[in-house]
Design a binder for these strands. Structure first.
Lengths: 158, 158
DNA sequence: TATTGTTATACTCTATAACTATA
DNA sequence: TATAGTTATAGAGTATAACAATA
């Protein structure tokens, strides 16, 4: 949102970048949250959106698998899943091979709510990004790939 | 964190970008939160960090000014400021010219805690970005400027 | 009457500690 | 004994509704 102290970020290599990075991603996160919240009552918070997006591609994962994936504690994901189960967006099922383990997946309703939130989020962000030229968008694509190498090295998009 | 459904984002202009944008900024936000939380007991949450960064450059702003700036409601910022006041990081003062109004500023402790969190956050992110080549960093700088034109048009860094 | 802010209430997100059930 | 998960508790962040004080 703000430069957060531009003056002191002009020294060396990566450091120079950080203030600009923060004052760019904060407004993006704001726009993202607005997109997810814009169609009540089927709206989702950012953690719920991430959780359901992950379940969309990792059906049957356990709670501890999710906790590790997201870098959160077990009680945190357990409680977050509680909320999604209460809204009938996610199913908690027992794993018969190891009855300590829970397996998770989206309900049909969950999938459709997630897809709607994603469409909405995409539409909002895409509309904003659509004001750029093709060259500018291509430059963003290349740069995002570089940034993912740094911040999400194990999660390249194929 | 995840692509969140790469397949369906390959159609038109801005839309193609959105999946890549999300799977890039989520891990960045994770790294940022880790940086802010890494030196207890003086750690800050992301909203606290943003609030204090804003106060750092806008001493004397009112609660409603902050609420508008952040796109939050008055009760929300009032309560968040409560927490910062309780930790003696922010001062709430009465404005004698309009006694309905509150003016806010960082305490000395607040300033030093914020600077420490910022140093820590910067160091962590800068270390990660420092693995890139100068050309790659220059490309990121240019791209962030483009993205700010889209998502934070009124807040250019001078 | 309109504006500024607080309080009451409720829900989500997060953590640590203590617990249960299963392996 | 170790692992998977839940429950208890607590604090932060968010909202809406109802309120008080000031203009």
């Amino acid at each position: 949102m703000q430069p957060l102290d531009t003056q002191s970020n002009q020294a060396n290599g990566g450091n120079e970048l950080v203030g600009e990075l923060l004052s760019t991603i904060f407004p993006i996160m704001d726009a993202l949250r607005n997109g997810m919240r814009s169609q009540r009552p089927a709206d989702l918070t950012e953690p719920q959106f991430r959780t359901m997006g992950f379940l969309c591609h990792n059906e049957g994962i356990s709670l501890s698998g999710m906790a590790e994936e997201f870098g959160l504690t077990l009680p945190t994901v357990s409680k977050m899943v509680d909320g999604l189960v209460k809204r009938e967006l996610v199913l908690r099922e027992e794993n018969p091979r190891d009855r300590r383990r829970v397996t998770l997946r989206l309900t049909e309703k969950g999938r459709s709510v997630f897809e709607a939130a994603k469409r909405n989020t995409n539409a909002r962000l895409a509309e904003m990004l659509g004001t750029l030229t093709p060259d500018e968008r291509a430059m963003i694509v290349s740069t995002l790939q570089i940034m993912r190498r740094v911040f999400a090295p194990e999660k390249e998009i194929g």
